[in-house]
Design a protein around this nucleic acid. Structure first.
Length: 299
DNA sequence: TCTCCTCGAGATCT
DNA sequence: CTCGAGGAGA
């Protein structure tokens, strides 16, 4: 089974559910083409309560690597006499039924299950990692362990399928309030991402602040935050943000543009335009990101 | 101005 | 894989 064509896979969805099934599989490695499931795990949830569990160790037919044993605690010895992954998949699919499947980095589990079931896995699924990356942007990392710690759950018993399913359920429930408040993530184009005109100041603005009444424009990738967050800081100081350098522009904030292949001399088109406007006498300053943060914090 | 495209960076699962 | 960024083209 080719791993990059999984036509009948379900969709990765945003949904506020109380009936679903949590899944987690342990495997011999990352790549479905070369690795196998060694443990199935699932929890059927109805009205928010676990009403059934499915747990089964499987023997892939070869010794498993020591680093898998170190990670999961599953040894080759434990798998002796266990059924093969292929002989368990039908029971597992029956357990899943038509439920939406909840997991952490669910694509990983789905791809293994899809392949071993020969494509009989059309269930839509929910990925708590994706939710967390969207709603908990301030977290440095979004591994299951990071979310478990963030929400204050007990992480002492991780890396087997059933305990991880329970933790994933708790994490999903903890992320639902964010979904309710902010709505599902929508793929947005720049027009929405960078429409800063609707931003309102959080708190009082200081007319004496250097950014008060000033028009700011960003170029390049900011190191410390996305543009919308930086734009909010500007608005909090009484300034506004726009998307292109014009005769109104007072500050151009330079992010990192190293990656951009089309920029050959280290300066973006916005940068060049700002320089020419500056030479023409316009009140425009070109400042690096670090200076920008000093400015907005100066209040 | 708005939409579509491409590119590079970074992250998660065992 | 997803996401944010600039740029082309309408």
């Amino acid at each position: 089974m080719s791993s990059n064509i999984r036509q009948n896979k379900g969709n990765n969805i945003y949904a506020d559910l109380s009936d679903y099934t949590v899944i987690d599989v342990e495997t011999t490695g990352f790549i479905p083409d070369y690795c196998d499931i060694i443990e199935y795990g699932a929890l059927r949830v109805r009205e928010g309560q676990v009403v059934a569990e499915f747990q089964q160790l499987c023997n892939p037919g070869y010794e498993i690597d020591s680093f898998i044993t170190a990670k999961t605690g599953i040894t080759s010895e434990m798998l002796k006499g266990m059924p093969s992954p292929e002989t368990v998949i039908d029971q597992f699919l029956t357990f899943l039924g038509n439920d939406v499947l909840v997991g952490h980095n669910t694509n990983f589990d789905i791809n293994f299950l899809y392949d071993v079931s020969d494509g009989r896995l059309p269930n839509d699924f929910i990925d708590t990692m994706r939710y967390a990356r969207h709603y908990l942007r301030n977290l440095e990392r979004h591994r299951l362990i990071d979310l478990v710690n963030h929400f204050g759950f007990d992480s002492s018993n991780m890396h087997r399928s059933i305990p991880d399913c329970y933790l994933t359920k708790q994490v999903y429930e903890s992320l639902l309030p964010f979904l309710r408040e902010f709505g599902p993530y929508k793929k947005t184009y720049r027009s929405e991402k960078t429409d800063f005109s609707l931003l309102e100041a959080e708190g009082e603005t200081d007319p004496g602040h250097p950014l008060f009444g000033k028009v700011c424009v960003f170029t390049g990738t900011l190191e410390k935050m996305i543009r919308r967050e930086a734009a909010q800081l500007v608005v909090n100081c009484g300034g506004t943000c726009e998307n292109s350098v014009t005769k109104r522009t007072n500050f151009l904030i330079l992010g990192n543009n190293d990656y951009c292949k089309s920029i050959k001399d280290g300066k973006s088109n916005k940068h060049k335009k700002a320089e020419s406007l500056s030479l023409a006498g316009q009140d425009i300053e070109i400042i690096p990101e670090s200076v920008f943060y000093d400015l907005v914090e100066d209040n």
